[in-house]
């Protein structure tokens, strides 16, 4: 379990990093927190010719609450985002999700942006980005583009980030007024990737009736599965909402696969249970908001 040979680059500026990545093209890989990439290298599942380490790019170590949302720089670690009170106030779902990501030592190194680019269907943050309709900012020399979540997760462990591109930040929109969020999941062990998980967002109108109810599910497809259940909830106040039919609507949209940890049926069942719990929790938060 030792990586195959590669050239190691440690650029001192984003410009230098972009040039290096552009030069390496297909053969380059960004090294951020390394919590996913290093195991893949050691198991020789990845064999990039050039590794571009962005850990010295302090200009990317940013976390800003902007008027429209939270912008997370590529070097902001999970732990920093998780513990930020400003972020918790602006978009609580980020913190709710990050508490479920791995263990503290991994969160001390892993990055939010790295997790999005890695695009693991069992990971929490892609579901958060998808649910909130956020975006990822990708850069190459002389060009920057923002890719909305809907187009970012293109397949199993695949994102819209092209070879030679650096993801410089991610943007998570603010929580609208009278809204609440929740993240519920079941993992085999504390901190493991979830067998199934559901992020939910519920918004209420001035009469405290449900005007928006959406969920994003993890581990039930090659990418986060986004389901709008506003209709199923039936524009009623949370206390009389039909959460069960909302959950069924979610289940109908999922096509989980079996693996050694769980059958497909069990995953679908869990998704229903968790969708109900997450929607109820989110609605409660919305009422408290």
């Amino acid at each position: 379990m030792k990586p195959p040979p590669f050239d190691y680059h440690a650029p001192r500026s984003v410009g230098e990093a972009l040039e290096t990545l552009a030069g390496a093209g297909e053969h380059g890989k960004v090294l951020a927190g390394g919590q996913s990439l290093i195991p893949m290298l050691n198991m020789r599942l990845a064999a990039p010719g050039h590794l571009v380490d962005i850990n010295r790019l302090t200009e990317l170590d940013t976390l800003d609450v902007e008027p429209g949302g939270v912008r997370v720089g590529a070097l902001a670690r999970h732990a920093r985002v998780e513990r930020s009170e400003e972020v918790a106030a602006a978009q609580p779902l980020l913190c709710q999700a990050l508490r479920l990501v791995a263990h503290p030592v991994i969160r001390n190194r892993g990055t939010v942006v790295g997790s999005l680019v890695h695009a693991d269907p069992a990971a929490e943050l892609p579901a958060v980005l998808a649910l909130l309709g956020g975006s990822v900012r990708l850069a190459r020399p002389g060009a920057v583009r923002d890719v909305p979540a809907a187009g970012f997760f293109t397949g199993l462990l695949e994102s819209a980030a092209e070879p030679g591109e650096l993801a410089v930040s991610a943007f998570f929109p603010l929580l609208p007024p009278r809204s609440g969020t929740a993240f519920r999941e079941v993992a085999r062990r504390h901190g493991d990737y979830a067998l199934a998980g559901v992020a939910a967002l519920v918004g209420l109108d001035d009469d405290l009736r449900i005007t928006a109810a959406r969920v994003a599910c993890v581990s039930v497809g090659p990418a986060p599965v986004l389901v709008d259940v506003t209709e199923a909830c039936g524009h009623r106040p949370p206390a009389s909402a039909d959460w069960a039919s909302a959950a069924r609507a979610v289940q109908e949209r999922t096509a989980p696969e079996a693996d050694i940890h769980a059958t497909a049926d069990y995953r679908r069942h869990l998704t229903g249970v968790l969708a109900q719990q997450a929607l109820r929790d989110a609605a409660r938060e919305a009422l408290d908001a």
């Binding site: 079941v186 085999r188 067998l195 940890h261 769980a262 059958t263 049926d265 069990y266 069942h269």
Partner: peptide
């Protein structure tokens, strides 16, 4: 026995 087994 796992949760998935118990579910079955």
């Amino acid at each position: 026995i796992s949760p998935s087994d118990l579910f079955d």
